[in-house]
């Protein structure tokens, strides 16, 4: 009884946080499934790839890689570059994922942008098991994504309704999460650096190549400012 309650309480606490992702992932997942469908792949591909890769942007790129000539080295290099941001998530979650037992393996496996963002910022209510809360956030998000991708793969071109602009739900969610972080942090130096350095790199390197330089710049400047930021001396 109490065992069941523990799971149900955590699931109930986690679900509301995942509603925007339900909208976003169902839509984006379906887009991905349809894209694979019209590229000539059966629904098994989007279904199994969304289960095992579970990194949205990489799965879209994977379609092109699968359509091209066989080149595993290039595929690996692309994957590492596109997903390098996960390294940052891992470093930020080292403490939070500590002590979650076996669930930790799944938490790390399923650490996409959205699950990371929620697990990093959500205030887990009193009496709710933190590990279980984060587990359900991750699991629900992956469920939405896999269902969307599979449906897109099966129904493919049958779907006709005007969803133009629905993908903005993800942008809106990241803006809200950025704002939540902004409202609770004492110094805004890191947030401002993240926005500013990324924007500068985007202008300098263009949309397809700016992520790695932006991450390097953020890492470099944050390390340079270590002494200042650790003291909490500046409150911008």
């Amino acid at each position: 009884m109490s065992q069941n309650n523990k799971y149900l309480t955590a699931l109930k606490a986690a679900f509301p946080y995942t509603i925007p992702i339900f909208a976003g992932f169902t839509f984006l997942g379906m887009t991905y499934g349809i894209y694979m469908n019209v590229s000539g792949f059966s629904f098994w591909y989007p279904m199994l790839m969304s289960m095992t890769i579970f990194a949205g942007s990489m799965e879209f790129v994977a379609v092109n890689l699968l359509l091209g000539a066989f080149n595993p080295v290039q595929a690996l290099a692309m994957t590492l570059m596109l997903n390098a941001r996960h390294l940052f998530y891992g470093i930020a979650m080292l403490d939070k994922y500590r002590g979650t037992g076996l669930k930790k393996i799944y938490l790390i496996f399923g650490m996409c942008d959205e699950s990371f963002s929620i697990n990093c910022t959500a205030q887990v209510p009193e009496g709710v098991d933190k590990g279980l809360f984060m587990f359900f956030v991750t699991l629900l998000n992956q469920l939405y994504w896999v269902c969307g991708a599979t449906m897109g793969g099966i129904f493919g071109s049958l779907i006709h309704f005007n969803t133009e602009g629905l993908d903005f739900v993800m942008t809106a969610m990241f803006v809200v999460i950025f704002l939540e972080q902004w409202l609770k942090e004492e110094s805004h130096v890191s947030s401002l650096l993240g926005l500013g350095l990324s924007a500068l790199c985007l202008i300098a390197f263009g949309p397809d190549q700016f992520m790695i330089p932006a991450m390097a710049a953020i890492l470099g400047v944050l390390l340079l400012l270590k002494k200042v930021l650790e003291k909490g001396g500046v409150a911008i």
Binding site: R85, F88, Y89, I91, A92, D113, S117, C120, T121, T171, F174, V175, I177, F178, Q181, W182, E185, H188, V189, S190, S191, L192, L193, G194, L195, G196, L197, S198, A199, L202, M211, A214, M215, I218, L222, L229
Partner: peptide, 13 residues
């Protein structure tokens, strides 16, 4: 300190 910067990066992304 990374979370703030990462969310900024994600918005730009």
């Amino acid at each position: 300190v990374l979370p703030g910067a990462v969310f900024g990066l994600l918005v730009v992304y």
